[in-house]
């Protein structure tokens, strides 16, 4: 396993574009901290975002994993190109001739995917911890380390998304087309969902129940949007006479759905590679 990771690391470390994208990704995560400095005047009242409780424990785990997940596209580009470049440089052929098995090839890519997700999670944990300790109103130990399931959800979500990217890279073999396909897939999912929601199953939650099994939808459900959970939004809504009653939790069956997709994507990648003549 270490040998496979070492091989992938060797391939990535000399690639300038991969290094730049990975660095950008991690730097941008730290830029979440910059939100704290957003200040503006609102009808004569000084308004500081950091004071609105977004960096309060344990809410910060939810908020940061949601925001950081948006940046996953940077790593997605790295993953798609590290897979499809093996096709365009025809190095996959040489790798196999040199004695890497097809199983090992897929496994080495998947290990890289998992380690990207893992290091993102660790990094996010550290950044959030520092941010929280400097801005949170509550710093009791038990509060700091509650709601950590958002980080687990974040990890699974990234792994799932990257596994999808890896599969697309192998399926399409060209990085630009693979990313395009990802976008098309996202549109298709939205259309399918829309059709079900507004045409087929009006006034019931069947559409939602089906859509939660879609790959991208299931990943996005893992960490739901955190904004409507903020006090300020909640109170504004109450004043307007409406009430948000949304479930922000992370559920085991949602994790399970995404994990099933991960297994499917890895298996399909292997299946494709095995069947293909290079």
């Amino acid at each position: 396993m270490l040998r496979l990771l070492n091989i992938e690391y060797h391939k990535l470390r000399y690639s300038k574009s991969s290094k730049v994208l990975i660095a950008t990704y991690f730097i941008l995560i730290t830029f979440i901290a910059l939100i704290a400095s957003i200040e503006f005047k609102f009808g004569g009242v000084q308004f500081r975002v950091a004071d609105q409780g977004i960096f309060n424990f344990p809410y910060i785990w939810h908020f940061n994993s949601y925001i950081a997940a948006i940046l996953k596209l940077f790593l997605a580009i790295v993953i798609v190109s590290m897979v499809s470049n093996e096709y365009s440089n025809r190095t996959i052929k040489q790798n196999l001739i040199d004695g890497l098995s097809k199983k090992e090839f897929i496994f080495s890519k998947f290990l890289t995917v998992v380690s990207f997700a893992f290091f993102s999670t660790i990094f996010l944990f550290v950044v959030s911890l520092i941010l929280g300790l400097s801005f949170s109103d509550y710093t009791e130990f038990s509060i700091i380390f509650s709601d950590l399931e958002y980080l687990l959800a974040y990890f699974i979500k990234l792994t799932g998304f990257f596994a999808f990217c890896m599969f697309l890279g192998i399926l399409v073999k060209r990085s630009a087309f693979a990313l395009g396909f990802l976008f098309v897939w996202w549109i298709l999912e939205s259309i399918a969902r829309g059709v079900m929601e507004y045409k087929l199953f009006r006034d019931s939650n069947i559409a939602e129940n089906i859509a939660q099994f879609f790959p991208l939808e299931s990943m996005s459900l893992l960490v739901k949007e955190p904004f409507s959970r903020l006090n300020i939004i909640q109170s504004a809504a109450t004043q307007l006479g409406s009430e948000f009653s949304k479930d922000y939790g992370v559920y085991w069956y949602q994790l399970l759905i995404v994990m099933a997709w991960i297994a499917i994507f890895v298996y399909l990648s292997y299946f494709l590679l095995k069947k293909r003549d290079l």
């Binding site: 391939k11 000399y14 690639s15 300038k16 440089n89 025809r90 190095t91 052929k93 040489q94 001739i97």
Partner: peptide
């Protein structure tokens, strides 16, 4: 073994 063209990482 080498078959057809030489395949290496260009970077």
């Amino acid at each position: 073994a080498i078959i057809e063209r030489p395949n290496f990482y260009p970077y």
